[in-house]
Nucleic acid binder design. Structure first.
Lengths: 209, 209
DNA sequence: AAAACTATGTATAAGCT
DNA sequence: TAGCTTATACATAGTTT
């Protein structure tokens, strides 16, 4: 039995509040349903209880309704745990960093290639020149090393061939009707010349520091 | 006077439907408000009329409520005009391109600085060396040009100062009781020394190619 | 805690202005 | 079209089971 009209303010008694919540919640959803049917309207209602539990009602698909609301209002609502505007901002920030890095590298490259020097100070030019000289030295050393290795390989190959020839000569002695061999000195010259040709033209450039 | 209980189905009479919509809508919002106050709940209601007009109610900020709903359900609601997955994919693709460019530039830089040459062929080393030599030549030319310009400027300044001195000497002759002036030769020496000091130490480095 | 009850307040359909 | 009235249906606070 209702004693009199109630005040619309928070019900302090927990049990009573929870009961009222349950009753009025279903009443609200019933009214929402009736409104949607009677008047052919799209209705959605979302209720979070004091304890944080969600109750919802929608006359049709609640997602569609919320989406329609978002479009109507030109806003959007995103769960924190999903790829968000925040995430996109992060990507963009990263891209800005990368663009800066690319620009930095390009400028550095340009300077190392002797371009875009118009606004360099003498001091800066000196630093660049020093760096380039250092680089040149390293590259030339590396080239020289590679060349030496090649020469060593060729010499080894030459000795190998010479040994082979000696061995073959011995066998020729055993079998005098073998194919004719060129004289030892000529052969050696030829081998060295042939094998050197591929590198000699480079030597002036490669080995003059 | 209500004749009897009504059927919950669409009201066909347009006027009557609109009146009912208006009445029940405000009734629903009133109930929603009461529920939120009595039970300390977070309540939001969204209604689209048949004509597509939006009416909403929220006990607090409706955006917060919808966002909370999105988080609770792990869903998100996006207006069509907002950044899509497609857009994010585009950004990522761009980033891949940028990463590749950075790597390419870094490798190029390294080679120009004489690093990471271990796997370069002789031919490649030669190309790098040629590039570096070209760069060095350009940088040195530029340095020489800058230096020449500085020297020219200094010479001009020196001439200017000399002229000034000559003029001042003339005036001293007109007004013998003026403040004492240093001797002409001493002054010229001082000026030239001062102006040169800033550059002379660099000259040896700058001009020796 | 949940469901049922019931007296009473509230919402509202239809009529009226 | 809107606002007021009023009879009636409906919702629900407080109580009981």
């Amino acid at each position: 039995m209702v004693r009199g009209k109630i005040q619309i303010k928070k019900i302090e008694n927990t049990t009573s509040r929870q009961v009222t919540f349950s009753k009025r919640r279903s009443g609200l959803f019933k009214k929402a349903h009736e409104l949607s049917v009677l008047c052919d309207a799209q209705v959605a209602a979302i209720i979070f209880s004091q304890k944080g539990r969600l109750y919802d009602f929608a006359s049709s698909d609640i997602q569609k309704t919320i989406k329609r609301y978002a479009e109507y209002k030109g806003e959007y609502f995103v769960a924190e745990s999903h790829p968000t505007e925040q995430y996109v901002q992060g990507l963009k920030k990263e891209m800005v960093t990368m663009v800066e890095k690319i620009e930095m590298l390009e400028v550095h490259n340009q300077k190392l290639m002797g371009k875009s020097l118009a606004f360099c100070s003498l001091k800066e030019l000196q630093e660049i020149a020093t760096q380039i000289e250092k680089s040149l030295h390293i590259v030339r050393s590396r080239k020289a090393k590679l060349y030496e290795d090649e020469v060593e390989k060729l010499k080894a190959k030459g000795r190998e061939l010479k040994d082979e020839r000696v061995r073959l000569s011995g066998r020729v002695g055993e079998e005098p009707s073998g194919m004719p061999m060129p004289s030892g000195s000529k052969e050696k010259e030829d081998v060295e010349t042939d094998l050197s040709i591929g590198f000699r033209p480079d030597l002036n450039i490669l080995l003059v520091p």
